[in-house]
Amino acid sequence: MRIQCTVNGKSVERDISPDLRLLDFIRETLQLTGTKEGCGEGECGACTVLLDGKAVNSCLVLAMQADGSVIITVEGLADGQALHPIQEAYVEVGAVQCGFCTPGFIMATYALLQDTPDPSEEEILAGLEGNLCRCTGYSKILDAVKLAARRMRESR
């Protein structure tokens, strides 16, 4: 089947199998391997991307369901060589250890801050409830989100 969508600002068109997941379309068809597969069942959030502005688990969406949509993956955040403030904050506070969960966390953070530029701690926890990290113990991730939120507000 023919799929057309916009990925990280570029229009793409491909022929794909109807049972392909959005996750496989992104990783295999488009070779954007920043998006990760953890559980494949909606539990870990490693595969989080923005679909028409909303954070979703790309392992639970068929690629064809995204036909005509606008998709942003972690590769779409940096501006050329300059990291996005969220990416910068994660690196700076040390919220990245093995890094496998990081793209998913960054996309969930991006969605959270787009709707809630000045989140309370409770709102951050709720915004990231769909993402699991096995390394950091989460407190550095919280710090990173707070730092990114502050910088993004200041640069507005």
Partner: peptide, 8 residues
């Protein structure tokens, strides 16, 4: 679920 689940 989670944010991601409720968005679908």
């Amino acid at each position: 679920g989670s944010v991601q689940i409720r968005n679908r």
